[in-house]
């Protein structure tokens, strides 16, 4: 079946069987390998992308189901001129990543979190990222980065 999505603002299509997971569609059919796959049962959050702006698990979505819709992946978070988004910059500044495998999922989740709540409390941040596993950082610097990103967004808007 032909599946066409608008990915990071660009219309992209490929012919795939109905069982193709959105995660595999992005990674293998569209060669956007920034979205990672850590469990394929919806718990780790590595595969989180934005579907029409809302974070979803791309491993728990068939590509064919979301035919015609808009997807943003980690490759689409930076500005058009290549400058990293405030969330990306905050992650770098706060050392919020180590191996980097879970990071794309966190970036997508945090981007949506801060859009909906520009000044979250510590508790809201921890709950807001609680659908994403990280095995390296112990989360402390991720939490710090979310607060820092909130500050950067506020400064720049």
């Amino acid at each position: 079946m032909l599946v066409t999505l608008t990915v990071n603002g660009v219309r992209r299509g490929a012919s795939v069987p109905p069982r193709r997971l959105l995660s595999d569609f992005l990674r293998h059919d569209l060669a956007l390998t920034g979205t990672h796959v850590g469990c394929e049962h919806g718990v780790c959050g590595c595969c989180t992308v934005l579907l029409d702006g809302e974070p979803v698990r791309s491993c728990l979505t068939f590509a064919v189901t979301v035919d015609g819709r808009e997807v943003t992946t980690v490759e689409g978070l930076a500005r058009a001129d290549g400058e990293m988004s405030p969330v990306q910059r905050a992650f770098a500044e706060c050392h919020a990543l180590q191996c980097g495998f879970c990071t794309p999922g966190f970036l997508c989740a945090v981007t949506a979190l801060l859009r909906d709540d520009p000044a979250p409390s510590e508790r809201q941040v921890r709950e807001g990222i609680s659908g994403n596993l990280c095995r390296c950082t112990g989360y402390q610097n991720i939490v710090k980065a979310v607060h820092r990103a909130a500050d950067l967004i506020a400064e720049e808007s």
């Binding site: 920034g34 979205t35 992946t73 990293m84 992650f91 770098a92 990543l97 990071t103 794309p104 970036l107």
Partner: peptide
């Protein structure tokens, strides 16, 4: 980090 933060890992 720049590589890993932009999906270029």
């Amino acid at each position: 980090d720049p590589r890993l933060l932009t999906g270029r890992g």
